[in-house]
Design a protein around this nucleic acid. Structure first.
Lengths: 132, 132
DNA sequence: GTGCCTGCAAACTTTTTGCAGTGCG
DNA sequence: CGCACTGCAAAAAGTTTGCAGGCAC
């Protein structure tokens, strides 16, 4: 480790929070991370969740997803993907295909140099479409 | 007017806030709406901005746009469009073309019934691309 | 044993609500 | 002139920070 750097410890809290995010079906809100992590670690505090999400984000192990004005978190390194937000049950799903062909470096009409893109689809998830 | 319904009045505050949104180059944050509206109406309070944005949203005259965890507002009825968020100057622009062909009712791989979609492009705006 | 990490509580920030006065219709 | 609307201030909700004790290493 470089001089001046501080160590980052492995703790039960951080392990549980990472595991919750890794095992989720899609990105989670702060509250949802807390709730799920507390089933393993009842005493876990919300401040630790915020601090850990910030730490993991700085380490690029997870990243925030802005959706409907909420900030959700999901693990990084799962490749390019997008999200589907169900207007009925309000769950968010991860979509593994991309409907868009816009490689980084493309120039969009008007002179906008595209570095990245985000697509969110809204509608009814398979379950809600069948039910409703 | 139907019985039980309450009237909605036209006021200087509402007019100014609507005008600010109509004249903006892209969607605005609550704080930005307040700041711009106050140049015309210095005494305007933040509570009135929140209440008016909520009212205009219920009337479908404007709608919220989720972007980077912030909620921005823009006028409705300007047709299908998307947004470009500049990673350098952090301004948000409105894009008048759509890179995506996904009509409402399409079924996306996995059985997701699409009602709407949102695309956000990230990168450098024409100005920042030229400067930087 | 050292000092990073945690839980709790207090401090901030952002959004909502209550209330008395104001002004639209 | 009645009552919806506004500004102010307090309340509620969401996020960050300070601190004393606990635990990883």
């Amino acid at each position: 480790m470089l001089p001046g750097m501080t160590a980052t410890r492995s703790t039960r809290q951080r392990d549980v929070i990472s595991r919750v995010l890794d095992g989720a079906e899609g990105p989670l809100t702060v509250g949802e991370v807390l709730r799920r992590a507390q089933t393993d670690l009842p005493g876990l505090g919300i401040a630790t969740v915020y601090r850990t999400l910030k730490l993991l984000t700085e380490q690029r192990r997870i990243h925030p997803v802005a959706l409907d004005g909420e900030t959700l978190y999901e693990p990084s390194g799962r490749g390019h993907h997008h999200h589907f937000s169900c207007t009925s049950c309000h769950r968010v799903f991860t979509l593994h295909s991309c409907p868009l062909s816009l490689p980084a470096g493309s120039v969009y009409p008007g002179g906008f140099v595209v570095e990245a893109h985000e697509v969110t689809l809204y509608g009814r998830c398979p379950q809600c479409a069948a039910t409703g």
